[in-house]
Amino acid sequence: MARAVLHVDFDYFFAQCEELRNPEIKNRPVVVCVFSGRTEDSGVVSTANYVARKYGVKSGIPIRTAKSRLADAKDALFLPLDVEYYKAVSEKAMAAIRENADVFERVGIDECFADVSERTGGDFDSAEGISRRIKDEVRRAAQISCSVGVAPNKMLAKIASDFDKPDGLTVVRPEDAGRFVSALDVDKIPGVGPKTRDRLAELGVRTAGDLAAFDIYRLVGEFGRKNATYMQNAAKGIDDEPVQESEGERKQIMRIVTLKHDAAAASEMYGELEGICRSVQESVSKKNLAFKSVGVILILNNLETVTRSRTLKAHTSDLDVLHSTTKAILDDAMADGMKVRRLGVRVSDFQDSTGQETLFDFMPR
């Protein structure tokens, strides 16, 4: 099964948050700054909206330089960071993305990875559909736009998310990965900075294709074995780094199976549901966990995803509770005309179950 990895990047995030708070400034150059406090103009630009970027204002330049470039834009705004407000907006958006991921990895206040391999079965049409839904749900939940890259690995997904900003969606299918990366300038590869780019140029290496074909022994001599191996693998579109749950993120255990035949009624899936529940419960028990949130995932024959969940009264790891709850959810979720291709069960909201008893332990069986 091919991996299907999404990189989601919130567009010009801090400046977009300021536009959200005050829509009247949206068509003005907006520059969010880290003021040092020494003088009125000391500090650096954190983020600029696309109106300001047309004047050459970008992240990392001195505020004084930004003001010089915007000298003719009398309505330009230079605003201080409001991190707590940005965090609140980010949480709303991240929650919408997390609900659509098998594995979710936050890598900053304005970007994250989502592995959707299980729920898509490695199907990139389905992954594209999930990406469009994420964009819609982020806009609905947080009122901001984001750009999404879809690819067989994290590196390519991150590159792809920057291809069509703002509010873009770029899909790099496994069969197109080599062709996609080979035409890129070498500094599009994450980790290749200006100094490395310039040294590679001196060696005649300007594109990822050039780098992929370059003598590995010369690369090792120039950059060391670790860096040389990473760069050449990246230039070939190779990246095996997994999407990993970030420390402190809400975790989930999920299983999804493809049905032998599309199902039009809940009863047609009871057999598969029992097996999925058993697999999920075994994983929960091995980790000495108890769950409180139970969800059912239905992927339809048109690749639409339907999710329904319930919160239990107490944490449990009991198979019977899991099975009866998911069966009730499935019965309620099925609608007339719905045809289900893939069925999944998800549990979350965990606590350590070692040595603990829950209300379910005292209920008659």
Rank of each mutant, 00 (worst) to 15 (best):
V31Q: 10
R64Q: 10
D41Y: 01
K74V: 10
I63N: 02
P29R: 03
A52Q: 02
G37F: 07
E84C: 00
L79H: 14
V32A: 13
V31R: 09
D82V: 10
A76Y: 02
G43A: 14
C33N: 08
A93H: 03
T47L: 13
K92I: 02
R64M: 04
P80S: 12
K58Q: 13
G43W: 13
T47Y: 11
S42R: 09
A52E: 03
V89I: 15
V34S: 14
E18P: 08
M94C: 00
F78N: 05
L81V: 14
I63G: 05
T39K: 12
A76T: 01
N27Q: 08
P29K: 07
A52F: 00
A48V: 05
R69V: 02
D41C: 03
N27A: 11
D41P: 00
L79Y: 05
P29S: 07
I61W: 10
V32K: 07
F35R: 13
C17N: 02
T47W: 11
E40S: 15
A93N: 06
V30F: 12
L20I: 03
E91V: 14
E84N: 10
E24W: 00
G60S: 01
N49G: 10
S59M: 05
K92H: 04
V45K: 07
A88W: 06
R53M: 10
L77W: 09
R28P: 00
A48D: 00
G43R: 08
K87C: 10
Y55P: 00
V30R: 01
K54C: 15
C33K: 04
K92G: 11
K26D: 01
T39S: 15
N27E: 13
C17Q: 12
V34P: 01
V34F: 04
L81Y: 01
V83Y: 10
T65E: 15
R69Q: 05
E91I: 14
G56P: 02
Y55L: 09
D41L: 04
R69C: 01
R38C: 01
K87P: 04
V34D: 06
I63V: 12
L20A: 05
D75K: 12
E18N: 12
S59C: 07
E24N: 04
K54M: 13
N27L: 13
D75T: 11
V31Y: 11
P62A: 05
A66H: 05
Y55D: 00
D82P: 01
D72Y: 14
R64W: 05
P62N: 04
Y50D: 04
E24G: 00
K67F: 02
K67Q: 10
D82R: 13
E18R: 14
D72V: 07
D41M: 07
Y50V: 09
N27M: 06
K58F: 08
K92Q: 12
D41N: 14
L77R: 10
P80C: 06
C17E: 06
S90G: 05
S46K: 11
E40Y: 09
K92A: 12
K67G: 01
I25Q: 06
A71T: 15
E84L: 12
E18D: 09
Y50I: 05
L70P: 03
A76G: 08
R53Q: 14
S59W: 02
E84R: 14
